[in-house]
Write a protein that binds this DNA or RNA. Structure first.
Length: 420
DNA sequence: TCTGGGGTCCTAGGACCC
DNA sequence: TCTGGGGTCCTAGGACCC
């Protein structure tokens, strides 16, 4: 048995934790650059706001109706997320952190000694009490069915946020009520295709012939179908597998033509990626740089390009990555284009421990470089930081817009909420 | 004026080898 | 001149997820 614990409109709820005055008010959270809506409260949904709506299109009307908006504050969200995950780890022996706002729990031990519905409620109430965050709990024999249960808990208020799909009858009943596009693993393309052959709900999908699915769709969807029937195909993954690539990219706050600024931007991204790479205890052998004009501006001539810069030896030294990012930028950059986004990607990873000696650097030199990076990372985890490289720029004129960001209530002394 | 960012997996097709 | 068939590896692109 699996449980899926899922936070209700996570980012919007995070913003409410320290702002009780926002209870029952429409709240939306915007993507980087205040571009579009990435999270919205129930009340905002009722105003007709949808996920991915561009902010500039809805801003005026939304505000007139009394809606509140926030720029994304990932520091706050990450901190609240980790508090919730800590609680779950106390409640269940095996937890897979699936995303910032979702976790799967293995309930096979729990089901012997406790009613699953009671366990679910206990989970929900503990998290509410300790963090103030509203969650729902879906329980089922496979991960995909736990997702179905979670859909039910969200859709039907009478469930009070907990749905247990242990029984086959309840599975069938709920799947018949669930539009097929809500099924985990069914995206836009497959939805269209399924509709084309008359499949409308999750139950109808679960009844399709597996060979038919494999020949007309693919084996991924066949797995989904088997999971809907209660056959476990997707196991719990407690340990996060080591990453295979790391991407850092941003849309600029305005269009950029100047090579110097682009150098700054990709240097900044490379330095951020280097920190992530070292946190994974990995080194990489390839850095790619990409650049893009704004595809929404049909009137502009477009240019997009990606190049790879290989390293002779795998590295996670910020200085190596910054240098490569600038080289890559020189190769993709063309004058007279108005760029709106650039990014870098690291790939071809090796364990940090496995180091090769090369002709030019001694072992002592390597140890020294490694210590330097460790020291910088350490300082940057404290309030003494941040230490950055000059190449990352000082003013960062290209960097993104976040005009409506909430304070870092939980991670910065200066932003602690005051009680008077 | 203004449309996010970061991942994984699968598949088809090309290069190369025997 | 004649140019098969099967395997592996890599890459780009598509589809999905949150």
């Amino acid at each position: 048995m699996f449980a899926l614990v899922d936070c209700n409109s996570f980012y919007a709820s995070c913003e409410r934790v320290f702002r009780p005055d926002l209870k029952n008010k429409p709240v939306v959270v915007l993507s980087n650059n205040d571009g579009c809506v990435v999270a919205l409260s129930k009340e905002a949904k009722n105003l007709g706001i949808k996920m991915c709506d561009p902010w500039f299109k809805i801003e005026k009307e939304y505000k007139q109706k009394g809606g509140i908006a926030f720029s994304s504050n990932y520091e706050l969200y990450a901190d609240i997320s980790s508090r919730i995950m800590d609680i779950l780890e106390q409640l269940s022996p095996r937890v897979e952190i699936y995303s910032i706002d979702e976790a799967f729990l293995d309930l096979s031990g729990v089901s012997n000694c406790l009613d699953l519905d009671i366990f679910g409620r206990d989970c929900l109430e503990t998290i509410k009490k300790w963090t103030g965050m509203p969650v729902r709990v879906g329980i089922g024999p496979t991960k995909t069915l736990a997702k179905v249960a979670s859909f039910g808990a969200k859709k039907y208020p009478k469930t009070n946020g907990v749905v247990d799909l242990s029984s086959k009858d309840r599975q069938t009943k709920l799947m018949k009520l669930m539009p097929v596009e809500e099924v985990w693993g069914v995206g836009r393309k497959i939805h269209r295709h399924l509709n084309g052959i008359g499949i409308k709900n999750a139950y109808e999908l679960s009844q399709l012939d597996l060979n038919f699915i494999r020949s007309k769709f693919n084996i991924v969807l066949a797995k989904t179908v088997r999971e809907l029937r209660g056959e476990v195909c997707i196991d719990l993954e407690e340990e996060a597998p080591t990453k295979k690539q790391i991407v850092v990219s941003r849309t600029f706050n305005s269009r950029v033509t100047n090579l110097k600024m682009l150098h700054e931007a990709v240097s900044d991204y490379a330095a951020r990626a280097a920190v992530k790479l070292r946190r994974e205890k990995q080194t990489c052998k390839v850095l790619s740089v990409f650049i893009r004009t704004n595809p929404f501006r049909k009137q502009d001539i477009q240019h997009r390009e990606i190049v790879s810069v290989p390293f002779i030896l795998p590295t996670n030294d910020s200085r190596d990555l910054i240098k490569a990012a600038k080289q890559g930028m020189d190769r993709v950059y063309r004058e007279d284009f108005q760029y709106n986004k650039a990014g870098i990607m690291l790939s071809d990873f090796y364990d940090e421990g496995v180091s090769q000696l090369d002709l030019f650097n001694t072992q002592e030199r390597k140890e020294l470089d490694k210590k330097l990076m460790q020291t910088i990372d350490k300082i940057n985890r404290t309030s003494l930081g941040p230490i950055t490289f000059l190449a990352q720029g000082i003013k960062k004129e290209w960097s993104m817009k976040r005009e409506m960001q909430s304070p870092r209530y939980t991670t910065s002394w200066n932003d602690l909420p005051k009680v008077s």
